[in-house]
Computed example of a mutant assay.
Amino acid sequence: MLLRERETPEGTLVSVCDAECLGETYDNGRASLSVSEEFYGGDDAVEADPETVVAALHRAQVGNLVGREAVAVAVDAGLVDEEAVLEFDGTRHAQLLWL
């Protein structure tokens, strides 16, 4: 998985995607999802294992996850409710917001 953390005026933003999703665009008939290099990749992105992803999501105020593995890690850790996961043309997407 690719993990990218950055500071924003609203707090830490964490983006995670399965590596094979980078550069792809998915559609579910109601919306499309672009997994852009600018948001999910770049020089700040690192390869991460599940433990590193979970730790980063605990530090985040906002998290964006794309891909079956990335979303499964967040669901398995109890950070994302399975019912809140969206399906996009063969992949999965979830967002996380700590208030």
Results as ranks from 00 to 15, higher is better:
Cys21Ile: 08
Val53Asp: 03
Glu38Ser: 04
Glu47Leu: 11
Leu13Glu: 13
Glu24Leu: 11
Ala77Asn: 03
Leu99Asn: 11
Ser15His: 04
Asp49His: 12
Asp89Cys: 03
Gly41Asn: 10
Val75Gly: 03
Ala70Val: 05
Val71Cys: 05
Asp27Asn: 12
Pro50Phe: 13
His93Lys: 11
Leu33Ser: 01
Val62Gly: 00
Gln61His: 09
Glu24Thr: 01
Gly90Ile: 12
Ala55Met: 05
Tyr40Trp: 11
Pro50Met: 12
Thr91Glu: 02
Ala74Glu: 08
Ser15Thr: 10
Glu20Ala: 15
Ala45Glu: 01
Glu24Asp: 07
Glu83Trp: 01
Leu33Glu: 04
Arg68Gln: 09
Val62Ala: 00
His58Glu: 15
Gly78Glu: 08
Gly42Glu: 13
Arg6Ile: 03
Trp98Tyr: 04
Ala56Gly: 12
Glu10Met: 04
Ala60Val: 14
Val73Phe: 09
Ala84Asp: 15
Gly67Ala: 01
Leu96His: 01
Leu65Gly: 07
Val80Glu: 01
Val85Gly: 06
Val75Phe: 09
Ser36Gly: 12
Leu65Met: 11
Ala48Cys: 09
Glu10Gln: 10
Asp44Gly: 15
Leu57Met: 15
Glu82Gln: 15
Ser36Asp: 06
Leu97Lys: 10
His93Phe: 14
Val53Tyr: 05
Thr12Asp: 01
Glu82Leu: 13
Tyr26Pro: 12
Val35Met: 06
Thr8Gly: 07
Asp44Lys: 15
Ser36Pro: 02
Gly42Leu: 14
Asp44Thr: 14
Phe88Leu: 08
Val46Lys: 11
Thr25Glu: 14
Leu22Ile: 12
Ala77Ser: 04
Val14Lys: 00
Ala56Arg: 13
Val75Ile: 07
Glu24Asn: 13
